[in-house]
Amino acid sequence: MTDIPSDTRTAAPSTGEEGAAPRARAVAALDPAAERRRARRSRRYRWDMKWSPYALIAPFFLFFIAFGLFPLLYTGWASLHRVELGTPTDMEWVGLRNFSRLLEDDFFWNALRNTFTIGIISTVPQLVMALGIAHLLHYRLRGSMFFRVAILTPYATSVAAATLVFVLMFSRTDHGMINWALGLIGVDAVDWQNGDWTAQFAVSSIVIWRWTGYNALIYLAAMQAIPNDLYESAALDGASRWQQFRHVTIPSLRPTILFTCVVSTIGATQLFGEPLLFSQGASPTGGSDHQFQTLGLYLYEQGWFNQHLGRSSAIAWTMFLILVLIGLVNWAISRWIRRSA
């Protein structure tokens, strides 16, 4: 899978074994039958040139419009209506009420706050750790491939499976793995799910576990792209390993770091499966105090539990606006970085 370029070039000129249009031109210039054939062929050729691009993008756009674009816009339409799950065709126009009520909806603000805090405590340690691990993996190591595969296995574990395991490890009583371990060092059993911060921490730990290795590999790929002479000249200047990391590695990785920040932020904004399955009985409220209810979970609760599809749509669009905002901020930051560089 790695030797791409050579492969491409040898495989490419495999055409032309029978399509001998140019040669035919010279030979059959005077033959009327060949002339007709040529005209037909060139007509077909022109037709092909003109329409084949559309044929190539058609399958994608067919599905894309039906299941991507249309629902996207229709969500906006539905958010302006009262729509109930039991009678989805029975829509009643309510204007912007579904949005305006979000402003005074404590559950919405609570979910927004939780999404934000869980996003921070899952993204920051995850990326910092990933950076450190990538740095270590960048050394010459025995069994480096083993390490790479091993730290990627959490990525193969689904949200649902991972959460079910973590729920058991974070059990309330002292037979939970984590409380038992804490007990060994003399800390009392923690009721992870019922505390505000503890629950958010536990939910974040699932995200951290699943994604740190993946991000480490992405950083590693970027580190391998850093030209070696940068390090060599730094070493000549007497820079220690740590100084090299700070002054060579980090600056070169800036675009990648920004990229992973964006992707992780988007992921964090949509966080859903972890908080849903972390609560007892997969209740969509995110704990008895809504202490770990995220926006994604609140949207689900409104739509498929409280059965208000219109209100749910309004939350979806608000989420989207927040993402656009994040995108704009990211764009501004990356411009700022480019200018300062």
């Binding site: 009721d191 019922n194 009985g281 209740s283 409220t285 008895s288 105090d289 539990f305 409280n306």
Partner: peptide, 20 residues
């Protein structure tokens, strides 16, 4: 159904488990 579930999940459960 919804009322009894919320009374339990977001109400009494907190009293019982969290001491609210």
């Amino acid at each position: 159904g919804i009322i009894s579930q919320y009374l339990a999940d977001t109400g009494m459960l907190g009293v019982d488990q969290k001491g609210t």
